[in-house]
């Protein structure tokens, strides 16, 4: 078997609506090929509205109207044979959810039910997937697991509002990791948190990933987060992956103009140098620009960029880059 755990091939998906007789198609994910390995921290970065969250939904096998998959597939490779998530039955999907693929969601305050104690939340989320345990065994498992996350078992008898932001975030991580899944998907897990809780949360996620030797797919727009936790990063722009590679290579030798801009504009303590920013707005995905989707904002665009779509190729820095100018 290969060392891959999940792959997408030529994935293309749109939000399609028919409102008041007007057809609208928003192409949010346009030709995404990802090969995510076992035992890695994989990062996906991009601006808001670039399709990151939609891509995550597809990776998790959630595809409900108005979202429609037009081409390509997503395969989960953690079972005996590859499971194509869009062809799988509801039963097959139910089996792998939470057990094999789980989620850490954004905003821990909104994830936990405010009128249920934490132990009830664990029963709501995780117990249906662990039916082989008796309730007492389940509770014992939860207590042990929380101990590993440095939470005392008193937490189980608390309501979410009684916990601090950092503790709540640890509870949601606890929920997602209870079944030791092969893949944990984290959508902006630290975006609403302050720096201290952020550092603590990222440290915890990194430790868990090492202990379980599984895969965490982390989505955030904040490249400073990726720099410190991700092993590999994919940079997404307007529904396409523009660059993908090892974190060190991407940060040291970004090959795509968009990546170069993102990395140059990062503020850092001890650095007062004037930072530029990208002019213009991200494209409207209902009517994306022709050719390379980045060309209207690209400072280096040439004629070819306006008409032809660049395909990813290996740049000299070792990253896969979808740009005509990358060498």
């Amino acid at each position: 078997m290969s060392d891959l755990i999940l792959q997408t091939k030529g994935l293309r998906a749109s939000y399609i609506t028919h409102l008041y007789g007007i057809d609208r198609e928003v192409k949010v994910v346009d030709g995404v090929d990802l090969a995510i390995r076992k035992n890695e921290f994989f990062g996906i970065a991009g601006e808001s509205g670039c399709g990151k969250t939609t891509l995550l939904k597809l990776i998790a096998g959630f595809c409900k109207p108005p979202l429609q998959v037009q081409a390509g597939k997503v395969e989960f490779l953690g079972l005996d044979k590859p499971l194509s998530l869009f062809d799988a039955t509801e039963e097959e999907l139910y089996k792998i959810r939470w057990r094999n693929i789980s989620y850490i969601m954004q905003g821990s305050m909104n994830v936990l039910n405010p009128v249920r104690k934490i132990d009830k939340s664990f029963i709501d989320f995780a117990y249906p997937h662990m039916q082989e345990l008796t309730p007492a065994q389940f509770r014992e498992r939860v207590v042990g697991h929380l101990g590993n996350l440095r939470l005392s078992k008193d937490v189980l008898d608390s309501y979410p509002h009684e916990l601090s932001g950092g503790m709540r975030q640890r509870v949601t991580i606890g929920l997602a990791t209870l079944c030791s899944p092969e893949i944990i998907i984290a959508d902006e897990p630290t975006t609403a948190l302050d720096v201290v809780v952020q550092r603590e949360t990222l440290g915890l996620m990194k430790r868990i990933q090492k202990e379980l030797a599984n895969t965490i797919i982390l989505v955030t727009h904040d490249l400073a987060v990726h720099a410190n936790v991700s092993d590999r990063i994919a940079i997404m722009y307007a529904g396409t992956i523009v660059e993908e590679g090892k974190t060190v290579d991407i940060f040291d030798h970004p090959a795509h103009p968009y990546t170069q801009h993102l990395i140059r504009s990062l503020p850092r303590l001890g650095d007062k140098e004037k930072k530029g920013y990208l002019k213009g707005a991200p494209p409207n995905l209902a009517d994306p620009p022709s050719g390379c989707r980045f060309h209207p904002r690209c400072p280096l665009a040439i004629d070819r960029c306006r008409t032809e779509v660049p395909l990813p190729k290996m740049a000299s820095s070792g990253t896969m880059t979808a740009c005509f100018l990358a060498e």
């Binding site: 916990l163 809780v197 550092r199 603590e200 990222l202 440290g203 990194k206 987060v225 410190n228 850092r268």
Partner: peptide, 20 residues
Amino acid sequence: STLDPRPGATSLADGDISTG
């Protein structure tokens, strides 16, 4: 705790450094 945007430049904590 401020993340340095250079690969692996920040030492991440794993413990009780935050509070309520």
